[in-house]
Design a binder for these strands. Structure first.
Lengths: 247, 247
DNA sequence: GGGATGTTACGGCGAGCGCCGTAGCATTCG
DNA sequence: CGAATGCTACGGCGCTCGCCGTAACATCCC
């Protein structure tokens, strides 16, 4: 008989409430937010949000770090983000595609963060350039780097871990807007981090959408021959944040 | 603001009902079942099941093919199975691991089907042997084969498609029980199909668990040096089905 | 054609749960 | 210390939705 269904339903129903789904979606960029921020994002009162957050924590989807009178909530790990992405692939295809409100959809699918790495056309462009350049090798739990690949990351100013990290070095992650893989994993996170540090890529406020600057485009193309990303300069309605701290 | 949350919640809540989750879980082996069978699996009356199936179809998760007075329901595609697997990774980790009822869990995590390919320890063993043998190459939308890899599949009696199929040739898929990747994609499906044809692997009744026979172990090891799978011969409580038809 | 089977449509019952108001606890700041 | 802020606990309201009984329709078998 079917013994796993109930557990599956337990997790899915946690994500199946609009308020909770909004919260989880907002946390997919890997940052930690307070209960009040999440309440605002979900469009409910703080008391309601508190209840939701409790359930999500009990379900193991969220972890919390207390800092003074603030409680910062974050996804417990990349698996959670990946599960959410898997659902968004279906939500995007949904009843037949055209469900993204035009502008927001365009910005998000152009370039965004996915948990702690880059996604959207930008993310898949990086993936494709590394693939066609022969910089990736199939390794135990995902991708590894060839010699030329190590050179590319060195040129980008990213130091490779001397010991293989617990988390996979690089790993494909299905992009819900492009329906093709982008790169996740330790190095993908390091790359995203580097991009924010150097202001090659800028975060936007209240959105997972990000912006590739002209400098960033040049820097990536220099270190990574074959990189092309059609992302246009932003119309800059709301000005992007200055390079934020990078944990 | 957050515009994708609602769509995400819509899909997740479809999976968030125990009855529907059981149905989806049962369909993850890629076969098509009738409404009555699904009703029995979910433990509800046929009328109730009909309602659930209607919702799942409207949500785009299920497709139906009518055959006489029977209506066969199946997942609309591998994306659905992958989204479900993503959730099962979380459900397995859940509140802390030990949630699988011992025996069923052991059988399922030993070897099972995942939509249309092999998973569990068997699936990851095949993946690992191909990786360490250097038979896989990173390709556009997933993995490709090296020359030696093509030889392996030829030795297994699998003909490679002469034109690249729409679906990725090979693609890693996170295994919820092993928490490591196994192989999905066109060739993985072909391999599973071949395994059932030749009775290298036998399906079990009413379960996604499968059994690697001695002959299968020998055949895989012969074509794929480095393949080791600790799967024991089954205790054979319920005898496995004879090799079923393979679409 | 008549009965059996598989499936869907409708309606009412009941429970679960999301929502917020009030209240209480911890932390920070003036 | 007292006020303000962030968050959680509790309780009641209201609505949704899962469930099944009855009924209707289509298909198959004899």
């Amino acid at each position: 008989m079917n013994t796993r269904g109930p557990y599956l339903a337990e997790i899915a129903s946690l994500m199946g409430d609009p308020a909770r789904a909004n919260m989880l979606h907002a946390l997919m960029d890997g940052r930690a937010l307070t209960a009040k921020e999440l309440a605002w994002i979900a469009g409910v009162a703080p008391q309601t949000a508190s209840g939701h957050l409790g359930k999500l924590m009990q379900g193991g989807l969220l972890a919390v770090t207390v800092q003074g009178r603030h409680r910062y909530h974050r996804l417990t790990g990349p698996e959670v983000a990946q599960a959410l992405e898997g659902l968004m692939v279906l939500a995007g295809a949904g009843t037949g595609g055209r469900r993204l409100p035009a502008r927001v959809g365009a910005e998000l699918s152009q370039a965004r963060t996915c948990y702690d790495h880059l996604a959207g056309r930008l993310g898949t462009a990086i993936h494709d350039a590394l693939v066609t350049g022969g910089h990736l090798a199939v390794a135990e739990g995902g991708y590894g780097l060839t010699a030329s690949g190590e050179a590319v990351f060195a040129a980008l100013g990213i130091v490779l871990p001397d010991r293989p990290p617990r988390r996979a070095l690089l790993r494909p992650c299905l992009d819900w807007s492009e329906r093709r893989p982008h790169l996740a994993g330790h190095l993908a996170a390091a790359l995203a981090c580097r991009c924010f540090e150097t202001a090659w890529v800028l975060r936007r406020k209240d959105s997972r959408a990000v912006t590739l600057t002209q400098g960033g485009r040049a820097a990536l193309a220099a270190a990574l021959p074959g990189f092309v990303c059609d992302a246009p300069e932003p119309v800059s309605r709301e000005r992007p944040e200055p390079a934020p701290a990078c944990a």
